[in-house]
Structures are given as structure tokens and as C-alpha cells.
Design a protein around this nucleic acid. Structure first.
Lengths: 301, 301
DNA sequence: TCAAAAGTGTTCGTTTTACACCCATGT
DNA sequence: ACATGGGTGTAAAACGAACACTTTTGA
């Protein structure tokens, strides 16, 4: 836990989590804790993808007044980047990556000129996905730790209303999207970030870009032939889940719709979940079989 | 061209190029310029993938004596990483990325403890692929700029002899390889770097790792549904080439064998090359149609 | 005529996608 | 009965991989 501040380097964290706004405790409906960027936040339900943010400190610069940013901090003089990212998660959020089952991964270095109004700033971004249960007690507080929506069924619906069918897009989210040049040709994609879309930026600095790039990495874990639980080394859902929950998760992480039967067969082929033996009758219709991850071995990457 | 040295940051460059050892000018057979890491360098022929290296300076530390490294340099105080990487390419190699058609891409940050015997060193790695014609005149010199083989038909053959058929590997190279857990399941791969294989390390420090990770990125450009020329914004082959040349290139970049007819049909489907109108009769057998890239638009990423 | 490399046709199995249908429950 | 969501069968289309064949040259 180094206190020596090594000025030019900063570490910013993109930490995702998954939760259903409809079942969030009512106290969290406080605007300052969960932001949907939407005039109608109640419309968001179903498993949704969030990113952890904090209130920016305006002590040093007016620019930050009222804005929100990713949690970040300075790189200590004798720290590795990996150590710094874990320390900052603990200092700023309370999250201890030694005890929770999640790991921080390198995202990239951000140093575009002018990215920070305070002058030159080199930022090392890290990303991770954590269980909602592991962070909910850290929400709020002095830094106003909160959740910013990245994707939900409803925000995908809204995207379709504004921009048309998803077919030409290679994944959409609140933080940006990519267009496909032609189906099944991976080259020649074109990305659109929040600075280029009508709804405008969400976080301060270039943190929207960081979220977008981290989301693209997250997306890989759901790229159809990967077991996401092994990739993350954790299960972001509850212990047991319905297949439709896993599908919702996959859809918001990929930013696209998947056909129900197709999804089912894909998952069955990959064979990384097994029936828990229980049924879920909480919704109308035929009771759903509950599933659990078969094994969570983190041989990934 | 900043002279202010910003001590803690360094930039290292992984610059690939493609050439056929059999047609290299004889002066380049000097061991110090082209290294195959092989007792029988004459066996390497066909299009091969190289990485640019320089002799390490042993002025400051005995460790570097006789070793080779990636070209690198310190980060200037008022430079962006991108600017620094271009300046270093120019200072150390003579390569001017403003005039050649190639672009440097961020690879990642390397800061493992103990990676540099001189103490803490943070390194920002960048990678690129350039035309052989653009760098051949810069080979040699005080820093002994040279080429280290990354992959060739012959070195793939040797891999098969030592480790068995390629089927279980997801790409092999002199700088490491990955094993597949099961066909068509992308998760659970396991990588093996030079420090873990009998032939041992090739470059000093952790530069073998940098080459390996850069090679994995390069590999994406040949991932079957991408037009590599558009991805790179340049054609690493000669202006006209045979389909078998493109296949050789693809094979050494992917580190795997491809069936001739399959490759042909894939390329034809993607439709990014067109017949130049000429035939090549330089080899026995039926003359080969010569091809050229259709268009090189760098919409990539 | 033969070897060598280029290029094509055909087949087979798997994966992707679509569509339609059946199933089990609460109201 | 019927709306609601869960779950399955089937078949066309697309794709990957293997094999065998034809073509065109130089020697």
C-alpha cells in the first residue's frame, strides 16, 4: 500500500456487474446510486449490465463539477500496475480482489493529448466483472459509488427505435456500437463512441471510451464458443439460474438479440452448465429448469 | 523529437516483416543480420516471418552482453506514447512511419517485477508489420539491426517433428504456441512461451513474451474472415503475388497448415484480391496467376 | 512422358438459421 | 380455455474439410 505518488501514471478501473433493476432494493433507486441515462428508469428490468462509477472530485478543477468518472488513482512508486489496480479497487471502492473471485485484466493505456484538462495524464485501464453481491454494500458513501447502466433489454429496444434493426450492428450498448461492413466479414468495422452520438457523453474525461473498450473485451467471453464462467473464474448470476437468465446476460453483454432455440442448443453443445434439480415457478408459464455452472476452472487466456 | 528523458517509461517495438530467405541478398546471410536459431539456416526457404531486433548495449549492465533485444527507447516528457513509438522507430531503426504505409498499434504494458535486472522498468509495447523493402537498407549498422525468425515453413515442420501433429495446437511459432483444449472450444487454451520450452529464450528481458503477444495479434489479421491488406493498410508481399505466396504468408502468420483448396475458396469468397493479368513461370509446374490486393482501405479496427 | 505445381468438382458432415410445434403451468 | 413462457423436432442453407481429379507447364 504505497503512499508515494508517482505523478504521471494513473490507473482507472472498469468494473462491471450484473443485476436486475426490478429486484434491486428500493433504497438503491436513489438517482445518485443507479443511473440509467433515461427519462424512464422504471422501464429497465431484466438482467442488466452496469459499470461502477464514482463522483468526480471538483476540488482541483471546475471541469469535474457534478460529473462522474471511473474509480481511479495514482500509481505508487514501487507498485506494479497489477498491484496498483488492486489497491485502488480497495481504497476507492472497498473491493478486495484477494478475497472475491474475480480478476483484473489489463485493458490498455490511454494518453490521447487533451484527454485530461489538468494536463498530461497517462492512464492505465484495467477491467473486471464482479458479483453484484460483492459490491452492493460498498455503494454510496463519500465518493458516491454508484452504478451506470451499460446495457439492458430496454436500452437495446430503444436503440432499435432510434437506429433501426440490429442486423447491421456488431453489438450495441449505451457506450457505443460497431457497424458491420457485411455479414461474416470481420474486417472494416466502424465504431461509434458516445461523443459521436446524439445522447452524448456519459462519464467525464475519456472514460466512456474506456468503458466501451472494456465492454468489447467482455463481449468476447460471450462469443458463442466460450464458457463465460471459466473465462471470468466466477458466476455473475445467482447460484442457480434459468436458461433465459443466462440468455439475457449473454444478450446484454453481446449487445444483440439471440434466438431462444439457437441459444439453447449452443449452450447445450458447449456443455458448461448442468441442471441443479430445482424448478422455478416464479413467472407464468411452464416452470423453468434451474442450472448451475459445471465447473469454474480459470484456465482462460 | 524530445530529448528530455522521462525515466520510468520505456517503449519497445515489435516490428514484423516478411521475406524469403532464399532470395535475400547474399550479404544478409551474415549471421549477425538474420538469425534462424537453427543449426541449418539454409533449410529455411519460402516466405517467412521476421521480427526486427538490435544488439543490446552492454555499457550499463553485464547482463546484456552479447544479447539481442527489441528496439526501444525512453518516453519523452512531452510525448504521447504514439509519438514516442514513432520517434523511437526513427531514431533506432531509421524507419519513418510518416512516409511508409504502416501503422503502429498498442500491444500492452509490461511491468512484471524483475523483468529488467536494472530495476523497475515499465515498458509500453507497440507492434506493426512493414514491407521488407522499407527496412532492408536499415539493417546492420552500429546497433546491428537485424532480423530474427518468428516462423517459416521449415520451423513449423521442425515443430511437428519435436511436438507432434499441429491438430492440438492453436498456432505455433518460434516464440511460443497455444494448445487447444478441444476443437472448436475457444476457452481453456494454454500458452507456452519460450522460457518453458527446451530451445529456450531467444531475446533478452521479457522481449520474447512481447513478440509472442504481438504475433497473436498479427494472427487475427489472418483469421479467415479478414482481409489482411485492409487490416494492415499495406501489402507485405510484393506488388503481384501467387496465391501460394499468400497462402505461405497466411500459414507462417497463423502458425498452422491450411489445405490448398480450402484456402483458395476462402480467399475467393472474401474477394479482396484480383488477377493482375500476368502469369508466373518461375517455378516448375503450371504457371500461376498473379494477384494483387483489390483495395487497401484501412477501415480496420 | 513424367514430375510438379496450379486449379476444379464432388461429396459429406457439421453448424447456423429459421420455423413450427408441443409442454406445463397459473388464472 | 387460454395466455405465457419453457422446451423440442425438423429441414433448408451455409460452411468446413476431405478427396480425387484435371490442367498446364518445364525437363
Amino acid at each position: 500500500m504505497s503512499a508515494d505518488i508517482w505523478n504521471p501514471g494513473a490507473v482507472d478501473l472498469v468494473i462491471f456487474t450484473v443485476a436486475d433493476p426490478a429486484t434491486m432494493p428500493s433504497l438503491m433507486w436513489d438517482k445518485s446510486m443507479v443511473s440509467f441515462g433515461d427519462s424512464n428508469p422504471e422501464a429497465h428490468s431484466g438482467l442488466s449490465l452496469f459499470v461502477l462509477t464514482v463522483a468526480a472530485s471538483a476540488d482541483l478543477n471546475e471541469y469535474f463539477k457534478g460529473k462522474r468518472v471511473l474509480p481511479g488513482g495514482h500509481l505508487g512508486f514501487n507498485e506494479t500496475l497489477s498491484e496498483a489496480s488492486q489497491r485502488i479497487a480497495y481504497d476507492r471502492l472497498g473491493l478486495d480482489f484477494n478475497t472475491i473471485k474475480a480478476k483484473l485484466r489489463q485493458l490498455g493505456t490511454f494518453d490521447a493529448p487533451g484527454r485530461d484538462p489538468r494536463g498530461r495524464a497517462l492512464s492505465f485501464a484495467y477491467w473486471s466483472i464482479v458479483n453484484f453481491e460483492d459490491i452492493r454494500r460498498f455503494l454510496g458513501g463519500r465518493d458516491q459509488v454508484g452504478l451506470e447502466l451499460v446495457n439492458s433489454q430496454h436500452s437495446i429496444d430503444q436503440f432499435v427505435q432510434n437506429f433501426g434493426p440490429l442486423e447491421i450492428y456488431d453489438g450495441v450498448s449505451r457506450f457505443g456500437y460497431r457497424t458491420m461492413p457485411s455479414p461474416s466479414l470481420k474486417s472494416g468495422h466502424q465504431k461509434t463512441l458516445t461523443k459521436d452520438i446524439p445522447s452524448g457523453p456519459i462519464l467525464a474525461l475519456d472514460h466512456d471510451d474506456m468503458v466501451f473498450y472494456a465492454w468489447r473485451k467482455l463481449r468476447h467471453a460471450f462469443d458463442s464458443r466460450i464458457d463465460p464462467f471459466s473465462f471470468f473464474g466466477l458466476n455473475p448470476l445467482s447460484e442457480e439460474f434459468r436458461l433465459s437468465d443466462l440468455q439475457e446476460l449473454t444478450e446484454v453483454c453481446r449487445g444483440e438479440r439471440i434466438q431462444r432455440d439457437l441459444f439453447r442448443r449452443n449452450v447445450m453443445n458447449l456443455d458448461f452448465i448442468s441442471e441443479s434439480g430445482n424448478l422455478d415457478r416464479s413467472r407464468p408459464g411452464k416452470p423453468a429448469i434451474m442450472w448451475s455452472p459445471k465447473r469454474i476452472n480459470d484456465k482462460s487466456q
